[in-house]
Design a binder for these strands. Structure first.
Ligand SMILES: [Mn+2]
Ligand SMILES: [Mn+2]
Length: 544
DNA sequence: GAACTTTTGG
DNA sequence: TTCACACATTCTT
DNA sequence: GAATGTGTGTCTCCAAAAGTTCTT
């Protein structure tokens, strides 16, 4: 773990804001521009204190809780911040409710002694009960006289939020990502960002995006909403316009979640309405809800529409299956589809609460050879290691900050086309065959670097050696091509175990304990492995 | 004061 | 924010 | 037994400090 300078948080903040200021100055409004221009001129201590406050939870802080060894002359420091509009400290602007959590139970009880409250009685109360007691106590008079120290309110928190969204391109990452990188916990690939690209074209699209995040956060925090409330969320989302391309999927996902909630509370009409607004991503739920709402004909024709132009294999398989189901319901002719039946074996092992079924099975097979519990952490990561240079190459718009574990367009349909990779088996065969050195070079030099699909602890040399020894380049090429064709859809569903028996060869096992059954994506991979003649079967575990 | 959760900071 | 599993309920045969 | 829906565990970095709850 590396040592950080004692003003690390300040340096990180400046690095981020300076980047945003330099590359997005044309998007920033007067308030945001002033924020940075005034901040830069603040005394050093005030800048430190402000950023320290930014990294903490909430917006109110007791001065006594802001003691940092590197920040001196705290009183002077916060007054300067207040004069420049970065904090305020007027108690009259706070409600009792906001201030409650700033003091511990014991502190409140001490303060209330002056109000001749019975200490023993109060100590018996739970925190939440004490809170409501205090609220009622001060219903008619002022609580502020009790407070003897300044309470600071941080201002302009929303600006940091805006800057983070501009810098990272999402609302998940934050200044802590700098720290995690700098102390060596997460290593990011050092890709080029020469073809610099703006995630937002104009102020309007940025504002709409900020609005979207606000609506989504509000929805995610809420619970057991009524039909009316859910609809109002849906309408708010629908009123947004001019959103940048990379935000649209998030909006659709949010519309989907809201509609799913409408479906759960059995407001099928509005759920159907909402699924329709989510542009494609929710056609399966739309069909199911139409069926629940006694609109089987409409569901059936939507199934046909999906079959004509499916979004992915999952959707296609669903449409075929459900079309049949609805046809039966409507007494229409049906097609009997061929069902894939994977090979099955049964093993009896002792139940041990300590280990999962997968680990217990792996231990069982390990006595007959070498067995590893790899699930999705073998083939997809190998794929990433082979194609590393394509994944991290500098395509315009792919990388906009140093904290990405994958390019922005990773899951887009034209991802490989943009990188001049033909999704063609001969090309893949040749590529795998000719790039083993590259694979091992990446495995060695990129170790512990964050990358799509990769979970490093599983990827040991011992395991990979056996994979290359027992699985031909041709078969690997087939697997990689399948992955490349639909990375989102095919990154999961791989069998639990890979087994190298003592007598030689390789087998993939999907472990199923009692009461568990194959999932759709697991079936698809098993059937794919059958197609390329790679041994894969289901292991049913019986406890004994 | 043990056992637990939440917050903090590098 | 993910995937796979466990478990409950309902449908289908 | 299949299909469907819901909830859970394990991850997201980790250790120390602060705060709460409940037991002895
Ligand atoms: Mn599994
Ligand atoms: Mn399994």
């Amino acid at each position: 773990m590396k040592e950080l300078p004692d003003n690390y948080y300040y340096l990180n903040f400046c690095e981020m804001v300076r980047f945003v200021h330099d590359s997005y100055s044309h998007l920033l409004n007067d308030r945001e521009l002033a924020f940075w221009n005034i901040f830069r001129e603040l005394p050093y201590n005030s800048k430190l204190l402000y950023v320290r406050m930014l990294t903490r939870k909430g917006e109110l802080f007791r001065l006594s809780k802001l003691n940092y060894s590197e920040i001196e002359k705290i009183s002077e420091t916060y007054h300067f911040l207040a004069d420049c509009g970065f904090v305020s400290y007027d108690l009259r602007h706070y409600s009792l409710n906001e201030v409650l959590h700033l003091f511990t139970k014991n502190e409140w009880i001490l303060l209330l002694q002056k109000k001749k409250c019975c200490t023993k009685e109060l100590k018996k109360l739970k925190r939440s009960e004490l809170d409501s007691f205090i609220i009622t106590l001060f219903k008619d008079h002022d609580w502020r006289e009790l407070i003897q120290e300044p309470i600071l309110k941080i201002l302009n928190q929303d600006i940091l939020n805006t800057f983070q969204i501009l810098y990272f391109g999402n609302s998940i990452q934050s200044l802590t990502d700098f720290v995690l990188r700098d102390i060596g916990i997460s290593t990011f690939e050092s890709y080029d960002m020469n073809s610099l690209h703006c995630l937002f074209n104009d102020r309007f699209s940025l504002d709409q995006t900020l609005k979207f995040y606000k609506i989504r956060d509000q929805f995610l925090e809420s619970s057991s909403l009524s039909s009316k409330e859910l609809l109002s969320y849906l309408n708010k989302l629908n009123d947004l316009s001019g959103l940048p391309k990379h935000i649209l999927p998030k909006v659709n996902k949010c519309k989907y979640s809201i509609s799913r909630e409408l479906e759960r509370i059995k407001d099928f009409d509005n759920a159907i309405l909402g699924y329709g607004l989510a542009e494609g991503i929710s056609r399966e739920r739309l069909v199911r809800t139409l069926d629940k709402n006694k609109q089987a004909e409409k569901g059936l024709s939507l199934c046909e529409e999906i079959i004509q132009d499916p979004l992915n294999i999952e959707e296609l398989e669903f449409a075929i299956f459900f079309k049949n189901k609805l046809a039966k319901k409507l007494s229409l002719p049906t097609l009997s589809a061929e069902v894939f039946k994977p090979l099955q074996t049964t093993i009896n092992i002792h139940k041990n609460e300590e280990f999962s079924v997968e680990l217990a099975s792996a231990a069982y097979f390990d006595t007959l050879g070498n067995c590893y519990y790899v699930e999705n952490s073998l083939f997809a990561p190998m794929f990433t290691l082979f194609f590393w240079d394509f994944i991290f190459c500098d395509v315009p718009g792919a990388f906009t900050n140093p904290f990405q574990y994958r390019p922005h367009d990773f899951y887009e349909h034209d991802f490989w086309a943009k990188r001049n990779v033909q999704l063609n088996i001969d090309w893949f065969k040749a590529y795998v065959h000719n790039n083993l050195n590259k694979f091992w070079y990446n495995w060695t030099t990129k170790k512990n670097t964050l990358a799509p699909f990769i979970y490093w602890p599983v990827l040991t040399k011992e395991l990979l050696d056996q994979v290359f020894l027992n699985i031909s380049h041709t078969k690997l090429a087939h697997i990689f091509l399948h992955l490349a064709k639909d990375m989102r859809g095919n990154k999961s569903g791989f069998p639990d175990l890979i087994f190298f028996p003592n007598k030689g060869g390789v087998k993939l096992f999907e472990v199923k304990g009692p009461g568990d059954s194959l999932q759709k994506n697991q079936k698809r991979w098993l059937s794919f492995f059958e197609g390329i003649e790679l041994n894969a079967e289901v292991v049913n575990v019986r406890w004994c």
